[in-house]
């Protein structure tokens, strides 16, 4: 943890990872899209609409994964005061919001033809909408203060408090009856998805993960540069 907390060291490591994560994203995306759109069968019940799963489910995973990352980074920032942790949390929020938004919209596009409705206020859909609001609230809060460190601290508290929503989303389909169906891939025992459909699903999930890593590197670099710009300006203003 301490090794990567140093921004200069992070930048050096990121420089090594970036071409790999970007390249892997392209390769995994190409394979996942090919299998998802052309190389996989239609579902016995849902027909071709099952292909929406290959973007809907990975974006839902990422919405939860990015938020968990953000909560861990926030805890590290609050407890150990690592300079990089706040930056990672701030850089993650818009990406997580993007994934969650995609999950909600693609879910609506899938729900309309299959369930018969764009939206239902069941526990799964509602808790996912709350996740989007948590991301948006975090983005607004972090930028709401003149002093960036105070903004980061407020954001970290919000991210940690909002973490209770993550297990609620995951288990909402088991704790309450919902319109949304229960988990398929992570259910105990065998996944309930045919291998021909599981392969593109997992490929797309990996592609989204490497894409997130790529975006995170770009955004952290951007944030670190902005911090340095602020520091130099501060020195100028205060007569350095």
């Amino acid at each position: 943890m301490h090794r990567f907390a140093n921004p200069a060291r992070f930048l050096r490591a990121a420089q090594l990872v970036l071409p790999w994560s970007a390249g892997l994203t392209v390769a995994l995306l190409a394979a996942g899209l090919y299998l998802g759109l052309l190389g996989s069968p239609a579902d016995y019940q849902q027909g071709e609409t099952v292909r929406i799963m290959y973007v809907h489910v990975p974006s839902a995973w990422m919405g939860l994964f990015v938020y968990s990352n953000m909560a861990i980074a926030s805890a590290v920032a609050l407890i150990w005061k690592h300079p990089l942790a706040d930056v990672v949390a701030k850089a993650s929020a818009p990406v997580g919001a993007g994934f969650t938004f995609v999950c909600l919209v693609t879910g609506a596009l899938w729900g309309k033809p299959m369930w018969g409705t764009w939206w239902a206020w069941d526990a799964r859909l509602t808790s996912m909408l709350i996740l989007l609001f948590l991301y948006l609230g975090h983005m607004a809060l972090v930028n709401a203060f003149d002093d960036p460190t105070r903004g980061a601290k407020a954001g970290a508290v919000l991210a940690l408090a909002g973490f209770v929503n993550v297990p609620i989303i995951k288990y909402s389909v088991d704790w309450w009856n919902t319109l949304h169906q229960p988990a398929s891939v992570t259910r105990v025992g065998m996944p309930a998805v045919d291998p021909a459909m599981l392969t593109p699903l997992l490929l797309m999930g990996l592609a989204f993960t490497t894409f997130f890593v790529t975006l995170l590197i770009l955004r952290v670099r951007s944030e670190l540069a902005a911090t340095k710009i602020r520091a130099i300006r501060m020195v100028q203003v205060h007569g350095g």
């Binding site: 759109l37 071709e48 609409t49 292909r51 929406i52 973007v55 809907h56 974006s59 995609v102 919209v105 693609t106 596009l109 899938w110 309309k112 033809p113």
Partner: peptide, 9 residues
Amino acid sequence: YVWPAYGIT
């Protein structure tokens, strides 16, 4: 439904 889902993504 399918193409808009991929499009928005």
